[in-house]
Structures are given as C-alpha cells and as structure tokens.
C-alpha cells in the first residue's frame, strides 16, 4: 500500500488539483502558485507534529536503502498532493486568492502551536478544506458564474463594483467543482489510509515471526525439554 497505492493516490491529487474545466469545456492546467508550496510545507510540519507522518519510522538508518527511498518518494508525493489540494481550494486570482491564502496561512500557523493527535488533525483538515471548498466552488462559483437568476447576477455585479474589481473570480464550468470535490476527497482518503496504516508497520510485521514459525519455535522448545528430561533419566 505504501509503495504503490498511496503514491498513486497522492500523484492523482497532484494531477487533478490544478485541473479546471473552462466554460468552453476546455481543460485548463493551473500550476501550483508559490504560496501553495509554503502552505504545503506548513501542513507537512503539522502532519509530523500530529504523528500522521512519523519521520523516524519513515526514514531510518536501520531500514533498507530501498525502503528509505520509497518512503522519501511517498513524502514527496504527499508534499505535491498537499500543494495541489490547496491549489484546488484557492481562488485563482485577485484579492480572494490572497484572502484565502491568508486564511489558510493563519490557521496552519496557529495549529503549529496546538496539541494534536492524528484524529484531531484529520478532523481539523476536513473542516479546513471543506470550508474553502464550499466558499469557492459553491458560493463564489454561483455568484460569478454565467448561469443563475437575476438576483445572483445583481449580487455578483454589486460585489464586483463595490470592491472595484478586486473580488473578481474566474468563472469555470460546474464540472470543475465536481473535480475539486473528488480531488479533496481523494487527498483526505489518502491521509486516512496513512493514519490507519502508517509505513513501517509492514516492515515490523515482516520482522515478527509468523504463526507457522511461532509453532516451529514452540515445537523446538518442547523437543528440547523432552530431550533434557530423557537425559536426566538416563544414567
């Protein structure tokens, strides 16, 4: 799972996080802005603090080099998936982009000083990404979208006019919202998998004796005991 499934999940998030579908149904690829990389680093540090990523188990000198490389690669895919998850939830331009970035930055920075465990961290991330998704893909998309009633259009125009165009947002096809929902859900699913099956467990399982080997051990002990009894009985 940690060598194939999780990297594939995180890479898929990295792929879909920057994909938007234009009003003419054309694919638009949005590369992650610099701020998303900063946010991803903050989130990774939070994942380490919340023990969702246990660096001492992921990268250890007593592990095989190939295992360390695989875990390092998983960490890298997690970083890019985090950056693209933010990219998916952030508005593309204007003041809203910076407002959302500041909201993310403030939340992540504050969380750096809170006491976290993996479950609380996951709940917090669901709320964080969920809020951003609802505001961007439901509220703003309806306000700035080409479809909608006259009231929506009036509200959108008023908001744009009152903010002198700084609160402008790029309209996308509704499919973009579905894509973003799937991307964020996939990202969170990846984190859940990581929380319940952390890397290092598989190696520990490998090092532990299997049932068959355990029975062999027990048999051997029994045999040894029987032999020693026979030795004692013999003159």
């Amino acid at each position: 799972m940690h060598f194939i499934l999780l990297p594939m999940i995180f890479l898929t998030v990295a792929l879909l996080g920057g994909v938007r579908i234009g009003l003419d149904h054309a694919l638009i690829f949005v590369a992650p802005p610099l701020i998303t990389l900063v946010l991803a680093i903050l989130l990774l540090s939070l994942l380490v603090r919340g023990r969702l990523v246990e660096l001492h188990r992921w990268l250890a000198t007593d592990q095989a080099p190939l295992t360390n490389v695989s875990h390092g690669w998983l960490l890298l895919t997690l970083f890019f998936a985090s950056a693209q998850a933010f990219n998916s939830a952030l508005p593309e331009r204007g003041l809203l982009h910076w407002l959302f970035s500041f909201f993310f930055l403030w939340t992540l920075w504050n969380n750096q000083f809170s006491v976290f465990d993996a479950r609380r961290l996951l709940r917090s991330l669901i709320v964080l990404f969920g809020t951003a998704f609802v505001v961007k893909h439901i509220l703003l998309a309806n306000l700035y979208g080409p479809e909608g009633g006259w009231l929506t259009k009036v509200a959108g125009t008023l908001l744009r006019g009152a903010s002198l165009g700084t609160l402008d947002a790029t309209p996308f096809a509704p499919a973009s919202g579905y894509l973003a929902f799937f991307t964020l859900a996939l990202y969170l699913a990846g984190l859940f998998l990581l929380a319940f099956h952390p890397p290092g467990e598989a190696e520990a399982r490998l090092a532990a004796p299997t049932d068959r080997e355990f029975l062999i051990d027990v048999d051997a002990i029994r045999q040894d005991k029987a032999e020693s009894r026979v030795e004692r009985l013999l003159p």
Binding site: F3, I4, P7, M8, L11, A14, L15, G18, H25, A26, L27, I28, F29, A31, A64, L66, T67, V69, S70, W73, T77, A202, L206
Partner: peptide, 30 residues
C-alpha cells in the same frame, strides 16, 4: 517486498513523468 518496492517506484515515477508532461504541454482536450 523488494519487487513491490521497485515496481511501485517505477510505476509511480512513470505516472509522475506523465503528470509533468501534461502540465508542461497543457492540452486543452483529451
């Protein structure tokens, strides 16, 4: 385990290269 690790690395590296290529070429449709 080694086979899984190596094949996982290769598979995901190819996938990552495909993603990079998609972002570099920015195709507008499938």
């Amino acid at each position: 385990t080694k086979v899984i690790q190596v094949s996982g690395l290769l598979l995901t590296l190819v996938y990552a290269a495909l993603i990079l290529w998609l972002y570099a070429t920015e195709p507008r449709s499938f």
